[in-house]
Amino acid sequence: MAKALAQIPTVSVKDLPKELFDQLDSYIQTLEDKKGSLIHVLHRAQHLFGYLPQEVMLFVARRLDIPAANVFGVVSFYSFFTTNPVGENIISVCMGTACFVRGADKILHEFKSKLGITTGETTPDNLFTLKDVRCVGACGLAPIVLVGDKVYGRVKLDEVDGIINAYVVKNFGKEN
């Protein structure tokens, strides 16, 4: 069940890069139908900032000349949008019926245990965010784990470490 807007924590960040606001503003200025482009603008904003903190949502509302409540409503309605920072790698465990019946709850528990976080949280190093999602439409591969766009099918408990380690190794040596 969806949370009421007042129950969804929204991050407030005072020191967001001005360059990103400038890029977003430039994009908005290219739009012919500004008010009808809210979802497109929010997608662009989330792509630029990585998430949608209060300041970004208010900026969008002002630039599109629409009530901030409309922006907050759209952001809270669509699960793609997030008001909190996310990790570099988003791990989504499918909890649809087929996946659940085949042990997705145990897979999710194993990710929680290994990463030291719960669903909706991000690891302190910002490397991983863990999500539980509804059906991803590939029931024949249940249980399914997605890391970004990569699909892992028929995942077993003993494969969780390998999935995590593949992304730790991939990010090893990157500057933070």
Rank of each mutant, 00 (worst) to 15 (best):
M95Q: 14
Q54A: 14
L64K: 02
Q46D: 08
H40W: 14
H47C: 02
Y51R: 02
D22I: 14
M95I: 01
K112T: 10
I90K: 12
G73K: 12
D132E: 13
L58G: 05
E88S: 04
K34M: 03
K131Y: 13
Q23H: 14
T83W: 11
L115M: 06
E32K: 14
E88Q: 12
T118V: 13
G73R: 14
S37E: 11
P124A: 05
M95G: 08
V13F: 02
P53N: 08
S113D: 13
G73D: 13
A6L: 12
T10S: 07
I8D: 01
N126C: 04
S12I: 03
P17G: 00
T97R: 11
A104D: 00
K114V: 00
C94G: 07
G96T: 08
T10I: 04
Q7F: 12
Y27M: 09
K35N: 03
A2C: 09
R63W: 07
G120H: 01
F81T: 00
A69C: 08
T122N: 06
N70L: 15
S37R: 05
A68K: 03
L130K: 01
A98G: 05
T30F: 13
I91V: 13
K3W: 06
P67W: 12
K34V: 03
L5Q: 07
F59V: 00
R102P: 07
L38K: 02
F111C: 09
K14S: 12
P85Y: 06
T97P: 00
F128N: 03
D25Y: 14
A98L: 01
F77W: 08
V56A: 01
C135T: 09
G96A: 06
K114E: 01
K106A: 03
K18R: 15
A4G: 12
I117N: 01
S12D: 03
M57A: 08
K3N: 09
S79R: 03
S76C: 06
L108W: 09
C135W: 08
A68Q: 02
Y27A: 01
L127R: 03
H40N: 15
H47A: 14
F49P: 05
F59M: 11
G87C: 11
D22K: 14
K34D: 05
E55A: 06
F128Y: 07
R134Q: 13
N70M: 15
L5R: 11
Y51W: 12
V93H: 04
G73V: 05
Y27I: 00
P53H: 07
T30L: 15
L38Q: 11
F128P: 10
K112S: 12
T119V: 09
F49A: 10
F59R: 12
F81Q: 07
